[in-house]
Amino acid sequence: MESVRKKRRKARVDETLCVACGCCVKVCPLGAIAVVNGLYARVDTARCVGCGKCAKECPASVIEVQEVEV
């Protein structure tokens, strides 16, 4: 039996342009995003369901929801 590759939607932060304001953290319903050491936001892909709330909120628009294979 071959393993089935599933596609899932996950948020991805462009860390080079993130201003670490934390707006995404406030809107994430699953607590799946955090600001690391005041540098940038990082997504916990295990928890993220790709709802896109963070991407919509991000003032710098540096979060994208992408389809990834898991």
Binding site: K26, G31, A34, V36
Partner: peptide, 13 residues
């Protein structure tokens, strides 16, 4: 610090 995954600001709001 090499790309530490430790975030001292946790996800809870």
């Amino acid at each position: 610090e090499k790309n530490s995954d430790k975030s001292d600001f946790v996800t809870e709001k």
